[in-house]
Design a protein around this nucleic acid. Structure first.
Length: 576
DNA sequence: ATAGGGTTAG
């Protein structure tokens, strides 16, 4: 009866709030009729779990008649195995406070949780206790310690613990091996690899991945061919290595060669196509994929969001919600969805997303918050953007760039410049997107000299200004009436200017009633986008403003005849 | 129980 209810609960995806309501009922039943430990064990053994199970496991633990070290340890292990690292660690701490002595299982599980979350203090405090609990000579505990220190980047301590081990198994060796690889020390990793008394497929995959990440695909391939046994991970490492280097054809060749693939294989390919802008191939594979999980949806939704197809991103998100109970969006999904909403400039979707996050109890992380910074600032709500920005756990180049751009488009040029300085002081390298925002700020403030200086600063940082950067610069010069200078800047561009660049010049010519450059700019706009009517009307305005009524009429007739749209969709013509 | 391969924002 109780197990039946538990099963019902597990099969239905319930929100945490709903789970807590039912929890009270089950608890009463279980305390009266059945052993809670049975429920507890059932929950721990289940594989078909939903988010609410994690709440349950803990709550029922509290109501066990004799919560001994074994029950606690099992729960810690369960949570750690299922990615609930914070929960696992906090339960471990609680168990200690009760004076219970954790087993080697509990200690290694808790350590693993600290390694995964990067909780330095947590792991070190566990390390300090291993003697007291008499678990310091356990190979599992020691191996997890090695892994913990390698994940912290502290190879000295990792190596010390490793050398002190009386007994080492292949996992211990693999841990120290992957530590050197993570630290980028391929030489030492190769030495460890050669020295290993026993190698398994994971050792081979680790060294394979090391060479793949270095971009040395010849070496990677030769290791791959030498391997005595290959797993999915081996193939996937090879494919992702090729994708990372942009060798899409090679990646595809090996992908096609595989007799069986797992979801990681498919997602690696989809992600690779996404990064090189081939959304069409990505979608083809996505459609072919036999059992799409939420990570596959995440990869595909992000592909659309990153390749300027926000509507497709939202459509696929909708499909994801309809696809069934076992595919649920997570924070990663929402970060991409928020980005798509932002590109559409639709606050409606934005507030819908926010209520979705609250309703489903999805944890706000820095990725999501950064996407929201961008969304809110595009909708004119800089205060909200600032609040989110200030709440970030760590501010990186993406977060700074979003906030700088947010200030810039909302007329807070001084704030934008201040943020940029702050970022440089924090030793965070600015990139192309950062400078887009900064240039926009100078543009907004009409600071021509600073704009030029910024342009040169980009080059000092080894960055090549893109067409978009030129467009902003042309706009800045154009607004200041420096039309000839703007024109010269366009002529000096290494790549072909797009309508954003010529459109900015045309707009400036319209403001300053300049026929000479206006005609040139308009001509390019007509060629590049013959069906956008706004360019014809801008030139018509220029003619009209200097009294050339006949030419103005000719332009308007031109426009009518083609039944053109009225306004060009350029943000800088609308932003003021 | 401990190790390797995938998705994340400007």
């Amino acid at each position: 009866m109780l197990l039946h209810r538990v099963k019902c609960f597990l099969n239905n995806q319930l929100t945490i709030k709903q789970a807590k309501q039912i929890h009270a009922q089950i608890l009463i039943t279980s305390l009266n009729h059945l052993q809670p430990s049975l429920v507890h064990q059932f929950l721990l053994s289940t594989t078909n779990y939903s988010a609410s199970v994690f709440v349950y496991v803990r709550e029922i633990l509290y109501h066990l008649q004799k919560p001994d070290a074994f029950s606690w340890g099992c729960t810690v292990r369960f949570l750690s195995r299922h990615g609930q690292f914070e929960e696992a660690f906090s339960l471990y701490v609680e168990m200690q406070k009760l004076g219970l002595y954790p087993s080697t299982h509990a200690v290694s599980s808790a350590l693993r949780a600290c390694a995964r979350t990067g909780s330095k203090t947590g792991g070190i405090s566990i390390h300090a206790q291993v003697h007291r609990y008499g678990v310091c000579n356990c190979v599992f505990v020691q191996t997890t310690l090695v892994d913990f220190y390698t994940k912290l980047g502290d190879m000295d301590t990792a190596k010390r613990v490793f050398n002190e081990m009386l007994e080492k198994n292949v996992v211990s060796w693999n841990s120290i091996l992957s530590g050197y690889l993570k630290a980028g020390n391929l030489g030492e990793a190769q030495r460890v690899f050669d020295e290993m008394p026993k190698k398994d497929v994971i050792s081979w995959n680790a060294i394979l991945s090391g060479y793949a990440k270095m971009g040395n695909m010849d070496k990677t391939l030769s290791f791959f061919q030498q391997m005595p046994e290959k797993s999915f991970a081996s193939w996937n490492t090879l494919i992702s290595g090729y994708m990372e280097r942009g060798e899409i054809e090679s990646a595809r060749r090996f992908f096609d060669m595989m007799h069986r693939r797992n979801n990681i294989t498919w997602i690696t390919m989809i992600g690779g196509y996404s990064k090189c802008g081939d959304g069409k191939s990505a979608r083809e594979l996505f459609d072919e994929m036999p059992e799409k999980d939420h990570l596959a949806f995440n990869a595909m939704i992000s592909c659309y969001a990153q390749n300027s197809e926000p509507k497709e991103a939202l459509k696929l998100f909708d499909d994801m919600l309809k696809s069934g109970v076992n595919i649920q969006p997570d924070g990663v999904t929402l970060a991409s969805v928020i980005s798509a909403c932002s590109q559409l400039g639709e606050l409606r979707f934005g507030s819908w997303i926010e209520s979705y996050i609250n309703k489903h109890g999805i944890q706000m992380d820095d990725h999501m918050a950064t996407a929201l910074v961008d969304l809110h600032s595009k909708c004119g709500n800089v205060d909200k953007a600032y609040k989110l920005f200030n709440g970030l756990r760590k501010r990186d180049v993406v977060a700074y760039s979003a906030m700088i751009a947010g200030c810039a488009i909302n007329g807070k040029a001084i704030d934008a410049i201040k943020l940029f300085q702050e970022m440089v002081e924090a030793q965070i390298q600015p990139n192309l997107a950062t400078f887009s925002g900064l240039l926009t700020a100078y543009n907004h403030a009409g600071l021509v000299e600073e704009g030029y200086r910024c342009f040169n600063l980009m080059k000092d940082n080894g960055l090549v200004p893109s067409t978009d950067h030129h467009a902003i610069m042309v706009d800045l010069l154009g607004r200041a009436g420096k039309l000839e200078e703007a024109y010269k800047l366009i002529k000096s561009m290494p790549v072909k200017p797009h309508t954003g660049v010529w459109g900015a010049l045309l707009q400036a010519c319209s403001v300053h009633k300049n026929v000479e450059f206006g005609e040139i700019a308009a001509k390019h706009c007509f060629e590049l986008e013959p069906s956008t009517g706004g360019y014809y009307s801008l030139l018509a305005n220029i003619y009209a403003s200097v009294g050339r009524w006949q030419d103005a009429r000719r332009m308007r007739r031109n426009m009518d005849r083609k039944k053109l749209d009225k306004i060009p969709g350029c943000s800088w013509t609308e932003s003021t």
